[in-house]
Design a protein around this nucleic acid. Sequence first.
DNA 1: CTGGATCCCTCACGATACTG
DNA 2: CAGTATCGTGAGGGATCCAG
Lengths: 221, 221
Amino acid sequence: MARRGYGQFCGISRALELVGERWTLLIVRDLLVGPKRYTDLRTGLPRIPTNILSDRLKELERRGLVRRRVTPRPDGSIVYELTELGSGLEEVILHLGRWGAQALGEPDEDEIVTTSSLVMALRTTFRPEAATGLHIGYELRFGEVVIHAQVDDGRLRAGPGELPGADLVIETGPALRAMMAGELSPADAIDRGDVLLTGDPALLARFVELFRIERRQQTRA
Amino acid sequence: MARRGYGQFCGISRALELVGERWTLLIVRDLLVGPKRYTDLRTGLPRIPTNILSDRLKELERRGLVRRRVTPRPDGSIVYELTELGSGLEEVILHLGRWGAQALGEPDEDEIVTTSSLVMALRTTFRPEAATGLHIGYELRFGEVVIHAQVDDGRLRAGPGELPGADLVIETGPALRAMMAGELSPADAIDRGDVLLTGDPALLARFVELFRIERRQQTRA
DNA sequence: CTGGATCCCTCACGATACTG
DNA sequence: CAGTATCGTGAGGGATCCAG
């Protein structure tokens, strides 16, 4: 997108010149979950052409958002990770995801759910005010994707992989969004067989209070 | 950017499919300041090709972010305004501008400042916590661009045009960013002749407390 | 296997001219 | 004022190939 910039001396323009190109913010989204190798990024973004991924990473590095690092031996592989400047985009991406979630609807048949997108979906929809005093560990299984979310008194730690000793393991699919959007009650979802639980079933109702897709963005606090 | 979408069932992807194309978020930025006619938008975005502006407006309307409205007689002109969905992007854009402002540096010689971009710059950098109990009206003149900012106890109303009876009128240029970023003290700016004041000069120091470009984004509250 | 580079093709975007 | 029409260019898409 920065072929010739926007010609405006403005923070928003500058931001778009830095990360406004196609695919760029999705790469940042995945890197917000943690450092990743080239192949990890390709796996998380199956539709990105390899030359584009290569271009974007080089530009992001040149612009100071991403650092290319060789991990210590013995594996000695290359990982890409966000610099402090790049990490500063977290709030932007969380707000973007919050806004976009209300436009999600049902998944298109060619749309997939990836590990990083699901982790970020939880971070996006988490409501700290609903989590005061709570200590719950969730494991979430969406098709092949397995992630976890540990809620501790208004704080969330969400990441890839399972959570041994989780209070509740939720196996589900597209019904998850419907529940989080308040279009489908947890009870109905269970009845329909849209979710499979292992652990305390009451914690599912709690889950949809903690992670919620708001119908409408609040206009201004 | 949504030629074929990203193929991911994810709020961030969906958001980028809706507003990720080039120029789109700058159009939304301008519309956040208020409804605008086609020509107003062209003036505010001099580098946008007219067919692209036309395309973007049509797509934004089709996607439910923008409404095309004919103003009541006698002028009967056409204005574009944000729907509630479109207005929901305000937080995204404010965060984006906050992040991008730290990468601004000195203006390139072909970069301009527009009315809407300056209004949004103030909204972006406003710190409510620095404004408790204050009641100040500023008029800001940046080249040809004239805008105003009325601060009232933690709230900001910023818009285009002058502010009759302003407590302080600030005439300035690129030095404004340097001051807001803490790279240039208000006193030095006055000494150098980089700003021209009409009103209480002490309110300039207050201004740079109210509107500040942070060096680094806070990583996470 | 990872971490890319290369090639070709298409279509979105850019520049400009023109119209109701 | 509010766009449409036309046409050229280059970024992005897709497949394949290559080096460590």
